Amino acid sequence: MQEVDARGLSCPLPLLKAKQALNQIQPGETIKVLATDAGSVRDFKTFTELSGHEMLESSQHNGCYCYVIKKTG
């Protein structure tokens, strides 16, 4: 699983970094994104709904948001 560290970046950079990572992997593979921007919760939810990629995990701990996204075919 590829990890994208977008902590400290503001919107829309965490989502842009995630999109770049998704473009580099094959369908069925996953990425893990770490972000500190509270707006990323809405951004990643909307992105996965519109793109068809699958959000496997969305969690928050001590101000760090973690998303695990599976690339679909």
Rank of each mutant, 00 (worst) to 15 (best):
M1S: 07
E3I: 08
E3W: 01
E3Y: 02
V4F: 00
V4I: 07
A6F: 01
A6N: 03
A6S: 05
R7A: 06
G8I: 06
G8S: 06
G8A: 07
L9W: 04
L9P: 02
L9V: 02
S10K: 08
C11N: 01
C11S: 02
P12M: 05
P14W: 09
P14K: 12
L15P: 03
L16I: 09
A18H: 01
K19G: 01
Q20F: 00
Q20R: 00
Q20I: 00
A21H: 00
A21T: 00
L22K: 04
L22A: 04
N23M: 14
N23H: 14
Q24V: 02
Q24A: 11
I25T: 00
I25W: 00
I25Q: 00
Q26C: 13
Q26T: 15
G28M: 04
G28K: 04
E29M: 14
T30R: 09
T30C: 12
T30K: 10
I31P: 02
K32L: 07
K32Q: 11
V33T: 02
V33A: 01
L34I: 13
L34D: 11
A35P: 01
T36Q: 12
D37A: 14
A38C: 15
A38I: 15
A38P: 15
G39T: 13
G39K: 15
G39A: 13
S40Y: 08
S40R: 09
S40V: 09
S40W: 07
S40G: 15
V41W: 03
V41T: 06
V41N: 04
V41P: 01
R42C: 13
D43Y: 06
D43P: 03
D43C: 08
F44P: 02
F44R: 03
F44L: 06
F44V: 06
F44Y: 06
K45T: 08
T46F: 10
F47K: 10
F47C: 11
T48S: 11
T48C: 14
E49I: 13
E49Q: 14
L50S: 06
S51E: 14
G52L: 08
G52N: 10
G52A: 10
G52K: 10
E54G: 08
E54L: 12
E54C: 11
E54W: 10
M55I: 01
M55L: 11
M55P: 01
L56A: 11
L56I: 13
E57V: 12
E57F: 11
E57G: 09
E57Q: 13
S58Y: 09
S58F: 10
S58Q: 12
S58L: 10
S59D: 06
S59R: 07
Q60S: 08
Q60C: 08
Q60A: 09
Q60N: 07
Q60G: 04
H61V: 12
H61S: 13
N62F: 15
N62L: 15
G63Y: 09
G63S: 12
G63M: 09
G63A: 11
G63H: 10
C64H: 12
Y65Q: 09
Y65N: 06
Y65G: 04
C66N: 11
C66T: 14
V68T: 08
V68S: 04
V68R: 06
V68W: 01
K70Y: 01
K70W: 02
K70L: 03
K70A: 03
K71C: 01
K71I: 00
K71F: 00
T72D: 03
T72S: 07
T72E: 05
T72K: 07
G73V: 12
G73L: 12
